[in-house]
């Protein structure tokens, strides 16, 4: 049983107009076996939370803590966090030219496990996981994310999730840009990983659609860098019906963004 604990997290970024605070005191505790959905309008800071957990250099933590089973995550480098068991499925996975998927997957697995995977079982595992996610076998010969469609990139993120077996998975809008079939395939992948019983999931999404396939235990609503409401799965149903409108009034700067988001949804 592991615990990922975020306490009073404040995060800012440097912009041309100066420093801008994006997260304004976020607290969240996730345990193994739990699925937490973080929902909110565009610009509410959801993705910032994901990137901050992973350690993206753009985000500066000005206050608060993140700990994994008591260990200070913020003191770890990006790769140390991954080796400690944190996994971020990225919203926009980058293309890495010249690095083949095979080479990348094996290098990462070796780094995370601290030893090279046994070649025979590894190849079999990769093949099986790819087949379940309906990824063509020839992807292993291609360069990381190079020329992949949006949906293919997301499947490959979930492929990594299944192969690397993290303690906590942060899914940053994995559902956006997916058609229904791809959404089902990706959700099944997350559910398989979850069903092994050693993982906690932080599911960041703008839409409630994915929650039909991945059932959250807790729902947190983000507005303007803060959690404004928390509840069980029923909260997601309510959001589905009402959108983010009702948070708009008290939420200052998020008002317009929330209204826009609702209009789009």
């Amino acid at each position: 049983m592991s615990t990922l604990e975020i306490k009073d997290l404040h995060v800012s970024i440097d912009t041309e107009q100066g420093t801008k605070e994006i997260l304004k005191g976020v607290s969240l505790t996730i345990r193994t076996g739990e699925t937490h959905a973080i929902m909110g309008p565009n610009g509410s800071g959801k993705s910032t939370l994901a990137s901050t957990i992973a350690g993206h250099p753009r985000y500066n933590v000005t206050a608060g803590t993140i700990t994994l089973d008591g260990d200070d995550v913020l003191a770890m480098s990006v790769d140390e966090r991954a080796r400690a068991g944190l996994f971020l499925a990225m919203q926009y996975p980058v293309e890495v030219p010249g690095v083949s998927m095979t080479n990348f997957l094996r290098t990462a697995k070796t780094a995370i496990d601290g030893e090279a995977p046994k070649l025979r079982t590894w190849t079999k595992d990769v093949k099986a996981a790819m087949a379940q996610l309906r990824i063509d076998a020839d992807f292993t010969q291609r360069n990381v994310n190079e020329g992949f469609s949006g949906g293919e990139k997301k499947r490959v993120e979930i492929l990594q999730l299944e192969l690397f077996k993290p303690k906590f998975a942060v899914l940053d809008e994995t559902d956006s840009g997916l058609d229904v079939d791809a959404l089902k395939v990706v959700s099944e992948g997350v559910n398989r990983a979850h069903a092994e019983g050693n993982m906690g999931t932080l599911l960041i999404t703008h839409y409630t659609r994915i929650l039909r396939y991945i059932k959250p235990d807790f729902v947190h609503v983000f507005v303007d860098g803060q959690v404004v409401e928390e509840g069980g799965p029923e909260l997601a149903d309510r959001l589905e019906e009402e959108g983010y409108d009702r948070y708009a009034t008290g939420a200052g700067a998020a008002t317009i963004a929330a209204a826009d988001a609702a209009a789009q949804a």
């Binding site: 991954a82 690095v99 780094a111």
Partner: peptide, 19 residues
């Protein structure tokens, strides 16, 4: 991206240059 998959910085750099 590579480091977020646990690959140490110097290994990641080599991987990219090699590629």
């Amino acid at each position: 991206y590579l480091m977020a998959r646990g690959i140490p910085e110097e290994v990641a750099r080599r991987l990219v240059v090699r590629g």
